[in-house]
Design a binder for these strands. Structure first.
Ligand SMILES: [Zn+2]
Ligand SMILES: [Zn+2]
Ligand SMILES: [Zn+2]
Ligand SMILES: [Zn+2]
Lengths: 134, 134
DNA sequence: ATAACCCCTGTAGTATACTTCAGGGTCAAG
DNA sequence: CTTGACCCTGAAGTATACTACAGGGGTTAT
């Protein structure tokens, strides 16, 4: 059995984060020792890593809660999980699209700016002041 | 001269947003009418659009405050503006890189998931539970 | 037994860009 | 002269994922 600090170290998160996850219902309420300390099975570290990996691919804590519910639901199907992943995938693609457009515009603008001369003649500021076909 | 509501409509933002921008120092404090109403020159709409366009390419309000300072500073050079744009460009490229990695992983995972069968055998959950070389 | 370190709860703060609310004047039309 | 639309201030709420703090008790090693 592990103390919260052990789980935190092994899971690569802070003690506060663990208490936060517990409060958010992302990890099951651990048993308590006689002194009131939380006592975790070694398995808990794996649960934390599940959460971290899911975050790494873009799932929010709310999403992760949903995934965990599916995981625990015997009636849920593989396709339910896949749907969440596909949904997240398209969210991410949307974000990439938005960012790519920003990147293209900024690249164009920075190429147009001569870097010398007064700001009053900067094409970047001009574009911001009166961009037409955005 | 325009009332705040006119500027809001023409600028495509809410009245509250305008008061917020003013409070944040992004637009100059407008003169007041005898009744205390803010009175804007028609030019104000253009300033709002400057802010909106800058947001559209990824600048935060803080960044925009900096840009506006440069714009107003006769000693500033075109290159100063370009530096901000290049900095933002690289921030955005970093975000795109992170998101692209997420996208690739999710794409791989969703292709591996058969969509049928119980969640207990979902390769997506397996990957989250014990991804190795991430 | 005293230091150094761990654990507990509950509340509040962080960042960003607003939105909402409470409570109250002002203005134009009918 | 009243109704509805508009304006004012200042404070608080929203979302996300924590982090920090206040105040207090438990554990371990010397
Ligand atoms: Zn498990
Ligand atoms: Zn320039
Ligand atoms: Zn102007
Ligand atoms: Zn699956």
């Amino acid at each position: 059995m592990l103390n919260i600090g052990d789980v935190a170290r092994q899971g690569g998160v802070s003690v506060e984060t663990l208490r936060y996850y517990e409060q958010q219902g992302l990890i099951e309420t651990p048993d308590r020792d006689a002194n009131g300390y939380r006592k975790y099975a070694p398995d808990a570290v794996r649960h934390i890593q599940f959460i971290k990996r899911a975050q790494d691919v873009g799932f929010t804590l709310r999403d992760i809660g949903d995934l965990l519910s599916l995981k625990a639901d015997p009636g849920a199907s593989c396709g339910d999980v896949r749907d969440r992943a596909l949904g997240k995938l398209s969210e991410i693609e949307d974000k990439i699209d938005v960012l790519s457009r920003m990147r293209d515009i900024l690249a164009t603008w920075t190429q147009a700016c001569p870097s010398t001369g007064p700001v009053s003649e900067c094409p970047i500021l001009d574009a911001l002041e009166a961009e037409k076909g955005l």
